[in-house]
Amino acid sequence: MDLTQNHFELFGFPVTFDIDTQQLTERYRDLQRTLHPDRFANVGDRERRLSIQRTAQVNEAFQTLKSPLQRARYLLQLKGVSFDDERDTHLKPAFLMEQIELRETLAAIPQQDDALTALNDFVNDIRSRKQTMEARLQALLVKDDPDSLGEAKQTIQEMQFLARLQQEADETEEILVGDL
């Protein structure tokens, strides 16, 4: 057992963004099986402790690699790109302007006559924006030069705003459906 392996190594993948997510799930199940607590019922404290650590490591690695956004973030960190989400407040003004407009649009949806249809259109719009950003992120990570990695970081941060917008849209939907 090697607790110093990075998440990609742990699952036997090369350190790249493009991984086979089906393979990821299969290997996760295999690893879980080898780490099942029943297997460690009759071993000493030290080995049991190690198996618990290993289980935590496997779970964290799986959760990180499963999400394209988290996987990209982790990959950049391995390449030495650091994130400080609480201090990096200066994003592209045009992007922030667009985000504020999207939030305004979303906030106005519940007052519309056919609110659920409007919300549905809105959610589809967010989904297509997300796909565009994911494709851009993938292309940047494949290029793998310093400029591209810097842009990839920016794209990841922008995707985090989109994730929040998605969450707000989901909450709006719950309220609308609840009112029916």
């Binding site: 994130f83 407040t89 994003l91 003004p93 922030l96 941060q157 985090q160 705003f161 929040r164």
Partner: peptide, 13 residues
């Protein structure tokens, strides 16, 4: 002034 917090997705104008 427009800023945003990537940590939580908050946007401020």
């Amino acid at each position: 002034g427009m800023v945003g917090a990537p940590a939580c997705g908050d946007v401020m104008r």
